Structure formats: structure tokens, C-alpha cells
Computed example of a mutant assay.
Amino acid sequence: MLKDILKNLQDFLLHPRQTWPYPRLVLDTIVSGLTLFMIVILTLRLFGFGDDTLFGENGMLETLQLVALGAATVVAILAAVRLRPAGRFVATTTALICLVFFLREIPSCKPDLALACVPREAHRIVPTACGLLLLLQAFLMFRTSPIALLRMMHPAFSWPLIFVGSLLFCGQLFERLHYQAFEEMIELTAYVGLFLINAWMFKSSYRVNIWHGISEMAGALLQRLQTSNNHRR
């Protein structure tokens, strides 16, 4: 029995049934993020802005990161509305992740900072609520179709989020080393990556069969939800 389990696990890991259909994501993310970073830096340098304005707390780059995260969240929500149930699960997951990081980039309100801030409690309540929602939808997906959930958790499919997470981890390392420029550059690139993921999902919502590989074994409930969704359209 143990041999069968190990064999099935090996087959699952080495022979994925579904891979992420946007293989150029890494290249597009790095090129787009670095290009945007260089354009902003060079443009603002020409106008005489210093390091504090560019890299400081609530500086121009952090504002740009908020714009990227806000756009990524909105696009993910739009994608979740249009996608099939399996794709909706992925889009909702990325939307919640974007929301958590969006809130993370907004400073807590202080006596000397009353605008463009959120209450300190929000930095605990919102991530906790998003985490619970992620667990809830993962549980519902598991109840509906364990196969579909496992396919979406496989590294061959979930590697874009792993890639973005690796970038953010590197950004945290540079923050601890007090390299603000590298920190802001890497975080901006990571958030651009989240936007590209969500933009691709929104684009894929107009292509009928793009999520069929995951949804084909998603179980009766997913099929009913898909049929209902098609009727609404």
C-alpha cells in the first residue's frame, strides 16, 4: 500500500496534468517591472527629486506599487466574475493576495499622519479575514473536486505565485540590509507580476476552452455552476 501511495505521489509530481498556460510570465514580469522602475527613476531624477521622495516611506515608488496592486485586485475581481468555477477559484485567490499586499503597503494612521493611512487594527483584521476566506474557498473546492484543487496546487500550475513570493522574499532581505532601491525595485516587479497574472486570467475569460483541462474533472457541482453561469451570459 505504501508503495502504491509513493508511486501515485511520484506520478502526481512528475507528470502534471495541467500547467500554467502563460509560460512567458517570468520574462514579461522582469522586463515590465524593471522598465517601469527605470522610467520612473530617470524621469523623476530629471525633475530633481531626491532619494527620500523616490524610495522613502510613502514615496513615489511605494505609491506606484499601490497603483499596481490596486489595478491587479480590480482585474482579478473582473476575471473571477467571468471565469469558470475552477478559474474563478484561482482569480479569487490572487485577488485576496493582492488585497493583503495592498493593505500592507498603506501605513498605519499616526498623530502626524492622518491622510492616506488605515487604522492599525486593519493590518491585522483584513489579512486574517482574507486568510479565512482562502481557507473557506479551498475547503469548498476540495469538497466539490479534490482533483481540481490538487491540479491547481501543483507547482507546475501554481509556480507564478511561487515566483512572485520569491521576489517578495528577496525584497524583504534587501529591506533588512537597508538597500531601499533594490527593495522597492523588486517589490514593484513582484506587484507587476501579480497584475500580469490577473490580466492574463481576465483575457483568458474570453477564450472558451482555456480552463477546460482543470474543469473537466471538477465534479457535478462545478458542472452545474458552469451551466448556470453560461445561462446568465
Rank of each mutant, 00 (worst) to 15 (best):
D4W: 09
L9M: 15
Q10Y: 14
H15T: 15
Q18E: 09
P23T: 02
L25D: 03
V26Y: 07
V26T: 14
V31Y: 05
S32F: 03
L34N: 07
I41A: 11
I41R: 09
L42S: 13
F47K: 09
G48Y: 04
F49W: 08
G50W: 02
D51E: 07
D51G: 06
V67Q: 02
G70T: 00
A76Y: 04
L78S: 04
R82L: 02
L83K: 14
R84E: 03
P85V: 11
G87Y: 03
G87S: 05
A91M: 12
I97F: 01
V100R: 00
R104E: 01
C109A: 14
C109M: 13
D112A: 15
C117N: 08
V118I: 15
R120C: 10
A122C: 08
V126I: 01
P127W: 00
G131Y: 00
L133A: 15
L135R: 00
A138V: 03
A138W: 01
F142V: 02
S145R: 01
I147C: 11
R151S: 12
M152A: 11
M153V: 06
M153P: 00
H154F: 13
A156Q: 09
I162L: 14
I162G: 15
F163N: 01
V164T: 12
G165C: 13
L167N: 07
F174Q: 03
L177Q: 06
F182K: 12
Y191M: 11
V192T: 13
G193R: 06
W200Q: 07
M201E: 02
S204V: 02
W211I: 08
H212N: 13
G213C: 05
E216D: 10
E216K: 10
A220G: 11
R224E: 09
T227S: 11
N229V: 06
N230H: 08
